[in-house]
């Protein structure tokens, strides 16, 4: 891999007198699925806001495809290939499913209106439930369906990078399962993803590289396969007691990769 798709270099950021991020750095290769994990207050969602451009970085650089996007507005970043699945899904409740998707393709339609129809079709193929409910108001759908819509709304713009913020928060276990399936589907497209999760176990089941945050810095980055439970517990700052549990989640995850990568390869061909 010549150049990472996303490079985050020593970002600091915060609100008012408070600095929350004290120099966050990590890189994501094209096609990679990176997870940013940490407990409440570690700076995960601030990292996400800074990547999106909603919160300005006070220092440091963010490179997308090698271009410095640190000073760009959120809209411009989207036009350059950044897609979002925001926290709480944030679909537009009083617009229909198809209107939500059309708005999601805002910058695509400005670039190349002809591609929209095909892109819409491919999202509908991937999420048949959205095609079924294309004229339904998004606000009236279930949590899991809204998650599909939120993901579809990001995908339709043909992004090179998708930022996914706390996807599992506020979802019932059943809906989480549904969401996991959705995200697996997205992973198959080969798009690069950055996932922020407080639910570490959920996150570990999806990503291939984990970046562990504590008090505003990334304290440890490693491929999931190389993580062991005590590193995870130490770097998340969750103490010894929870180690066992984290370990269990990790063991589950580490038994999966061969299976998933084969399924990924299998479906791609």
């Amino acid at each position: 891999m010549s150049q990472p798709l996303l490079q985050v270099e020593d970002i600091t950021a915060g609100f008012g007198a408070t600095t929350v991020l004290h120099g966050v750095s990590f890189t994501v290769p094209a096609g990679g699925i990176a997870g940013v994990f940490g407990l409440n207050g570690a700076g995960k969602s601030v990292t996400m806001k800074t990547l999106a451009g909603i919160l300005p970085a006070r220092s440091g650089r963010i490179l997308l495809n090698g271009d410095d996007i640190t000073k760009l507005s959120p809209e411009k970043r989207v036009a350059r290939g950044m897609g979002h699945v925001p926290q709480g899904r944030q679909v537009f409740p009083q617009l229909t499913v198809e209107e939500n998707l059309r708005l999601g393709a805002y910058t695509l339609r400005r670039r190349d209106k002809g591609r929209y129809a095909a892109s819409l079709d491919s999202v509908y193929d991937r999420f048949p439930v959205l095609r079924q409910r294309r004229s339904q108001m998004a606000g009236t759908m279930s949590g899991g369906q809204q998650a599909s819509l939120s993901v579809g709304r990001a995908l339709i713009n043909e992004p090179s990078l998708i930022l996914i913020d706390e996807p599992s928060a506020g979802l019932s276990p059943v809906a989480q399962l549904e969401l996991n399936e959705v995200l697996e589907t997205v992973a198959e497209t080969g798009v690069t993803m950055v996932l922020v999760e407080q639910n570490v176990a959920f996150g570990l089941s999806l990503v291939d590289t984990a970046h562990l945050m504590q008090t505003g810095v990334v304290v440890h980055s490693a491929p999931v396969a190389e993580l062991d439970e005590s590193t995870l517990a130490t770097h998340l700052g969750i103490g010894k007691v929870l180690q066992a549990a984290t370990g269990r989640a990790l063991a589950d995850r580490q038994s999966v990769p061969p299976q998933r990568s084969s399924s990924r390869a299998g479906r791609a061909s």
Partner: peptide, 24 residues
């Protein structure tokens, strides 16, 4: 210390990994 070790607490706090077998 005892409460934090209980399985239901661990599950609530760290979440559960979705059952991969069923998903796939």
């Amino acid at each position: 210390v005892e409460v934090v070790g209980r399985p239901e607490v661990v599950t609530a706090y760290l979440g559960v990994a979705p059952q991969k077998q069923e998903v796939n």
